[in-house]
Design a binder for these strands. Sequence first.
DNA 1: CATTAAACGAGACGGTACGTCATGTCTTTGA
DNA 2: TCAAAGACATGACGTACCGTCTCGTTTAATG
Lengths: 188, 188, 188, 188
Amino acid sequence: MVGRPRSEVAREAILKAALDIVRERGFGQLTADGLAAAAGVGKQTIYRWWSSLAEVVLEATRMVARQIDVPETGSLEGDLAALLAASFRYNRGANSLRVVLGGLMAEAQLAPEFAPKFAAFIEERRSVLRGVMLRHVPADRRDDVEAAVDMMFGAMWYRVLVGHAPLDAEFARTLARLAAAPHCDPRR
Amino acid sequence: MVGRPRSEVAREAILKAALDIVRERGFGQLTADGLAAAAGVGKQTIYRWWSSLAEVVLEATRMVARQIDVPETGSLEGDLAALLAASFRYNRGANSLRVVLGGLMAEAQLAPEFAPKFAAFIEERRSVLRGVMLRHVPADRRDDVEAAVDMMFGAMWYRVLVGHAPLDAEFARTLARLAAAPHCDPRR
Amino acid sequence: MVGRPRSEVAREAILKAALDIVRERGFGQLTADGLAAAAGVGKQTIYRWWSSLAEVVLEATRMVARQIDVPETGSLEGDLAALLAASFRYNRGANSLRVVLGGLMAEAQLAPEFAPKFAAFIEERRSVLRGVMLRHVPADRRDDVEAAVDMMFGAMWYRVLVGHAPLDAEFARTLARLAAAPHCDPRR
Amino acid sequence: MVGRPRSEVAREAILKAALDIVRERGFGQLTADGLAAAAGVGKQTIYRWWSSLAEVVLEATRMVARQIDVPETGSLEGDLAALLAASFRYNRGANSLRVVLGGLMAEAQLAPEFAPKFAAFIEERRSVLRGVMLRHVPADRRDDVEAAVDMMFGAMWYRVLVGHAPLDAEFARTLARLAAAPHCDPRR
DNA sequence: CATTAAACGAGACGGTACGTCATGTCTTTGA
DNA sequence: TCAAAGACATGACGTACCGTCTCGTTTAATG
């Protein structure tokens, strides 16, 4: 027999409340009791479907991140700048994901069982950026593509995590230019 | 009157034990009780001189990081490669700082009062890399220096934190080449 | 329409499984989920017919207790000894009810709504013992009958609950002698 | 070295609050969180010194029970009646221990590790009643002393637990008379 | 040399959150 | 309508740490 089906209402309430709490009060203030209360849900319902709060937040974040669509400007530099700018946009302003991403990265450092799940999310994002580059870089010039991805997303995460400088459109353009130059310059 | 002076023995035992615990068992396993026991010290002695465990670890880390010396190879690319390779070396092998750095970054995300102290440490390291670049980049070509620093240290931290690829000498050379090229290319 | 009738199979499986679990693992280990699983039954089926697990166990226990039959030896002391010995027998050996009775008494202390139901069961047993006494004690000597019932069943429960001494045939005879003596002593 | 000494204030607050809660709301309503809050104490402070709530209540109860002093009326029946009446008095009226004793008995049934500790308390009380009897019963007539103790305290506990009849002075006298008669009647 | 006062080890303290367990109810499919 | 299955909201559990607070002891500089 089948039993009562999973409540979609509860699932969405949990994901939404988790994002809200982290954004408003910080990842460190997200507690299982608090999340359950905010979502109007029993604590067990959280642990039945996710094995830690970090995974709840990761799922919510992944749903947001997937809304970023792949640009098509015609040039490598243009595509990179567009994708980076779109990514940066989620880390600015009212509904910024900055503290959310910071919290996920923190959990990945502190909780060994969460690290591979977070790494899978990171790889998902990398594959988008890598795909954009591969569209423009000829097959015989791809040695530095991975390093370029690391530089761009590395720089983005560095600013997300340390907060020493803004993630604005200008920075997106600068990163795109620096990353695109060596790959497409035929004279090098 | 003056009272008993601070015990240097205790101070060093705490710093050493903190690094050891984090390296061996992970930052998440570092607890005040455990550190006090490992250092043969009362818990209050920790809190008397540091306001959180993260600051103990930061102080220990800073002492290690300062041992990295500034290279002098004659070329921008050579200096960058040398500095990056030296930095990477601390995140590999037996006494790797990887989990230590990851733990500090995590704490900076979760504990607001620790963030500025960690940011100061980050800026200390950035200033070394920036100094190397400024030695080679002419004053009228310095617009992208900050972005280049972000790309290099960003890429390093990204690999430290995510662990998707190694921090080896080849990666140091690649980053140095990509970062140096735009700044010194006379044709640009 | 009448709907599906109550399943007698389920009812008996529940009563049997409840007694088994309590006897084998203790009353404290009897849980609704565990009982449902052991009886091959849905949890709701338990709650539909009983309002607590204690009532399931009480019903099962009552069915066992009613198998004790009223003795007819000819003397008060003989009848008392026989009834007590028969009662004691259920609290010894392989299928002992000791933990079952202890558990019921415990629930009566902790769950106010169960207490009157348990008290009714107690009164049912008292009335059997009282009936035996009334058969032998003349109407003008009945002042202490209630107290005698309390002493005999009190002593029995005391040993059931505390376990400091055995409930054997000798104790049955001793109790019967002490309880019968004052009532039948013509010199008093 | 020594460390901070145990707080006597906390100890007494816990014992007092435990008794108060059980008396006012019932043993089943005594929770670790509630007790800690009522006593103004951390939960760990309870578990540091007692291994379960039942043991807290047992210690508090023992302190009360020890206030019952041993009577000295000159006759067996008088001493028994006095001791029983004094014991009964704690189970009546405003500060009645009835629900406390019921709760302890319940816990002894449900928690195997508590049972021996409760049995020791029971034996402590039995030894007082036994001592009273031994003062009056000659050495060659002591065969039934244990059974008499079981009958008296058994009857008391039976009424405490089931509540079918009052624990008043008259019941104390009746029990004393029934229990004393066989032991001291030289004609029997 | 005796006093003074801060630092020290030990460890108990009031708290907060954890992740688990059990309760009694609800919601599905199937008989 | 009843039944099995199993998800649900609730709430207590006992544990782990936190950062603070006594204790009695140790250690230098001051008087």
